[in-house]
Simulated scan of single mutants.
Amino acid sequence: MTFHISLPRIMKVGAGAIRELGETVQDLGAARPLVVTDPFMKESGTVDAALESLRGAGLETALYAESVPDPTTDSLESGLAAVREHGADLLVGFGGGSSIDTAKALGFLALNDGPMRNYKAPRNNTGPALPVLAVPTTAGTGSEATQFTIISDSETDEKMLCTGPSFLPIAAIVDYELTLSMPGRLSADTGVDALTHAIEAYVSRRANPFSDGFALSAMTAIGANLREVYKDGSNRQAREAMMLAATQAGIAFSNSSVALVHGMSRPIGAHFHVAHGLANAMLFPAVTEFSVSGAEARYADCARALGVAGEVDGDAAAALTLVAELKALNEDLAVPTPKSRGISRDDWERAVPVMAQQALASGSPANNPVVPSASEIEELYSAIYG
């Protein structure tokens, strides 16, 4: 069997890597980069290091700082205008997953006719796009190494998964020092997102030996460090481990796939504006418990990689330990339920049938060890409400 592997052409990883941004853009042959980020990154001065490196290399640099959480098709319009006004030949996606996803979408739409819904899964996009250099400032999404972008349709509220090599960054700068100021809640949510990527990539029906190695390595690092960065964000060693793990998990799922947790979490984000990692965390224990029977040995491997089960534990016991660990992790990271987050039961139950259909339409549930029906997805949504 042949596995199709896709990776960024260049990755620079480590403390201070941001200072090599300008040199990297030059090496890629670009001269007019547009930095795509959000208002907070601009106002806090976090993006200044990127701008200084680009301008210091003599590059004609512009800044677009209007990306929004959970980018929508409407939010892309001003960004596309900025790309064209600057005559950008490369986009630097700087920030969390939303900013990097925005850069990916803008790079694609700059060279392809819209609307974005024409390019959602299951379509595999292989056409031209402006190159994107990704600079993550959170340790979670792995978007710097994936061939996916997530854009919500402003007309339907569907959170669209758009896939293919067209969305793979040409390069990434992975500097953990950019994460040192992350607050605890964000550290928890993005960390669980990375863990979800790693576990789903490993148990996916599309898993392969290449993705497996990255997934297991990421799980081990996250198991040892996620609670620590939530408790003490200044722990540089833990921050570095989480940043690398997030990128490894991104490589894993980009070359395997995500599964039911992600299929179900995207609609929660679209309908109730819950952060993606937090929505994953809400779902993770229940969906894993539902799925264990389809890949017991694989889930057992995950428990061992996380350090909550040993080689002497049988697969059945280890897999159940994994479910227990995910429940304990949610407690330790103060993950709310939809109910405790303030979502009314009526609103939740009203949305459940639509969310179930949107989850199935994304294609991700088909990669799950146990492929669910629409009614089973509805039952899972109801079960996690709280």
Rank of each mutant, 00 (worst) to 15 (best):
I151T: 10
E228V: 15
F167N: 07
S234R: 14
S166Q: 01
D157H: 15
P183F: 06
C162V: 15
R236V: 13
R227K: 15
K231G: 08
Q237C: 10
I151C: 10
N208D: 11
A194Q: 02
G213M: 12
I173P: 03
Q147M: 14
N225Q: 06
E177K: 12
M242E: 04
Q237Y: 09
M219A: 02
D212F: 00
A218I: 09
Q248W: 13
E158F: 12
I150K: 09
D212W: 07
R185V: 12
G233F: 01
E240F: 01
D212R: 08
I150F: 14
I173H: 05
A218S: 11
I150C: 12
D157V: 11
M160Y: 03
A201N: 00
Q147P: 08
Y176T: 11
G213I: 10
N235P: 00
V203T: 12
Q147F: 10
M160F: 06
S154N: 10
I150E: 13
F167V: 00
L168R: 08
L178P: 08
V192G: 03
T196Y: 03
T247D: 08
D189E: 13
S154P: 05
S211F: 03
D193G: 00
L180C: 08
A171K: 03
L195E: 00
S217E: 12
T149D: 10
I170P: 07
V192K: 05
A171L: 06
H197T: 04
D157K: 15
V174A: 02
D157P: 07
R206F: 14
E155S: 11
G213N: 09
R205D: 11
A207R: 15
A194G: 00
E158N: 12
I251D: 04
V192E: 10
E240G: 05
G164E: 10
H197R: 10
L161P: 07
M243E: 11
G184Q: 14
M243H: 14
A172C: 09
T190I: 09
K159R: 12
V192R: 02
N235T: 00
A194S: 00
D157A: 15
V192D: 08
L195D: 00
L226T: 03
L186E: 11
T247G: 06
F167Y: 14
S211P: 02
D212S: 09
A238I: 03
Y230Q: 05
K159W: 09
T247Y: 06
S204V: 02
M242C: 05
F214E: 07
A224Q: 15
A172R: 02
A241N: 07
V203Y: 02
A215S: 12
L244E: 04
D232Y: 10
E200Y: 01
A221V: 08
G213L: 15
S234I: 06
R227Y: 09
F214M: 13
A207Y: 12
D212V: 05
D193T: 00
S181I: 08
D189L: 02
F214S: 05
A194H: 01
I150S: 12
Y202F: 13
V203S: 06
S166L: 01
E177D: 14
I173S: 04
S217Y: 12
F214W: 11
F210T: 08
A201D: 00
M182N: 13
G164A: 14
R205F: 06
I222M: 09
T146C: 11
F167Q: 03
D153I: 07
T220K: 15
